[in-house]
Write a protein that binds this DNA or RNA. Structure first.
Lengths: 254, 254
DNA sequence: ATCGCTATGCGGGCTAGCGTACAGTTGCGC
DNA sequence: GCGCAACTGTACGCTAGCCCGCATAGCGAT
């Protein structure tokens, strides 16, 4: 699972660092500078990357993995407030100044990522180049997503939120199927498992998705879009506005 | 209402820029540099400072005013996800890179603030000094507050959330009384006005607060602390950890 | 002092989502 | 190909908070 670190322009690398949009958007010199510090890691479903209150050692740039930021209450119940795919990075606190967060981060979809040590990230950030711009804009997008989640949690039904969650996850996934039990989805959204059974049942009866033990397939994306609350569009629009678009942008500074 | 801009060290100024903790924590040279660009403004209850999607012209550093960040849904209902007092600033998007936000900002408690133009803030931020550190740490604290609000909205009762909101507001206020109708509190928390009537009634019967038309007085802060959910403590702790402590720190670089 | 606006109090019916309990079923591991 | 753990389906009562409507009361302006 060694990635070709020495070859920064290997466009045939299925899982090279430039599968991550933020890294891919860097100009050549900045990419080369940080590439030497990137370490490929395989992340397994359920793996906990950050524990509440713990020191953060690494930032993670997913290429195929999807990560989930959530907060676990004293009662044990939890709620996701943002997700991170290959459009972004985990660990904004590292360059924002606090080296810990009060939230947890777990792997929601297994896959690959590149990690970089705290100090290396901070040094790269402090060079005040394109990377800094990209990371700040990404942090802004993450903030919007979190704020929208707060509002959505207040006002929208579980059905709507499930659609939102499915669409956001789908956008980060190459395939139309996610490996995910209802139990896990429930803990992401912070509702009971039965609530997801019911909501997913409705969507399946409507022919929009189909699922079996631990797998959910999206059959009709447009159908989900018709059921979802406004929150999905708001978040998506903000991401599109603030982030590089995923085209291979090496050398294009901005 | 002119503030003594020319005198950067006028410690007798009741409403000088150094009533704002972020500004007060700047070392002398950085303070002087930005002080020339600060413009005192009086903010009235209910005034809208940012409209969703609009271009942001100014950042605001409250000294006595309290501002509220919230999102208004298509249905018209709304939900606050963070508040800003003299511990912070409004407009983190200005230095994060997006010059707009999808959320609204309104004045929750009338008072004074200093505003600074977009460009001036960006220039000061890009000097990569203490101001940059402070603003980034503040953005991190704001993020934590927003994430916590998302979780709280999901899992805690209106009673608990009212306690949280009262305590957070109180922390930003010199007095024990807030000018605020139940209707307004309701729109902050994103619940019905009757829900607040009921919750506030309970607190009043318990002798913790007393209120009359448009005024809420806190009688027993410790009582509120006994009723509040964990979210208050989490947010407060994170603010204490990340932010300057409000002592007059001019000259102390960090 | 009175009027009128607006804030607050209250009640009744309703629904979404919770807690709990248990039954059915699938697919993995041996 | 068997067993079993784990995932999914269903049901029932319960409560918080919603929507709606209307009654009362405080406070400011005339």
């Amino acid at each position: 699972m060694k990635a070709p670190l020495f070859s920064t322009q290997n466009s045939s690398a299925q899982n090279g660092p430039n599968q991550n949009y933020l890294l891919a958007a860097l100009p050549r010199n900045e990419f080369d500078a940080i590439a030497a510090r990137l370490e490929p890691v395989t992340l397994a479903l359920g793996q906990m990357l950050y524990e509440p209150g713990g020191q953060l050692r690494y930032a993670y740039f997913p290429t195929s993995a999807i990560l989930s930021l959530h907060y676990v209450m004293e009662s044990g119940s939890s709620a996701e407030f943002a997700g991170v795919g290959n459009e972004g990075m985990l660990g904004v606190a590292l360059f924002m100044g606090g080296d810990t967060t009060s939230s947890s981060a777990v792997v929601q979809t297994g896959g690959q990522a590149y990690r970089v040590e705290r100090r290396a990230l901070k040094e790269a950030f402090d060079k005040a180049g394109i990377l800094q711009q990209l990371l700040l804009r990404y942090a802004q997008a993450l903030f919007t997503q979190t704020a929208q989640t707060a509002a959505c949690n207040r006002h929208h039904s579980v059905d709507q939120q499930l659609c939102r969650w499915l669409l956001l996850t789908l956008d980060r996934l190459p395939a139309q199927e996610l490996i995910m039990t209802q139990e896990l989805v429930a803990s992401m959204l912070g509702v009971r498992r039965e609530g997801i059974t019911e909501a997913a049942g409705k969507l399946q009866r409507a022919g929009l998705i189909s699922y079996r033990r631990g797998h959910i397939s999206v059959l009709a994306r447009t159908g989900l879009e018709a059921h979802v609350c406004e929150c999905y569009a708001v978040v998506k629009k903000e991401f599109d506005r603030l982030l590089p678009d995923g085209r291979y942008q090496q050398g294009a500074a901005g």
